[in-house]
Amino acid sequence: MKKPMETWQYLTASTVTYAMKAKKLLASRGFTVIAERNVKTAGKTGGCGYVIKIKGDSVTLTGAKRVLKAAGISLKEAEVYREEETEG
């Protein structure tokens, strides 16, 4: 039986430290979040960086960005660069 489709929102983080910080903070606020290497668009963002994958829709993303901003994690460090639907 096919699994339901899941939607993930992507933010970029320039360093692993920011990625970890964002991941821990968002996870502590109930977001489902994964930090991993930026494997697709690193070449467009300076080379070698990280993405924060947040499970949910654009409303979820807005909430996540609000949490990050309140914690002083600059959005310059983490900008939306794509949205993608994948099979869960």
Binding site: S14, T15, V16, T17, Y18, A42, G43, G46, G47, C48, G49, E77
Partner: peptide
């Protein structure tokens, strides 16, 4: 090398990198 911003010839600005 810092593992970040590898295409940039300059040292990253942000801490700790």
């Amino acid at each position: 090398g810092t593992g970040s911003s590898s295409l940039n010839y300059s040292q990253p600005d942000s801490l700790p990198d």
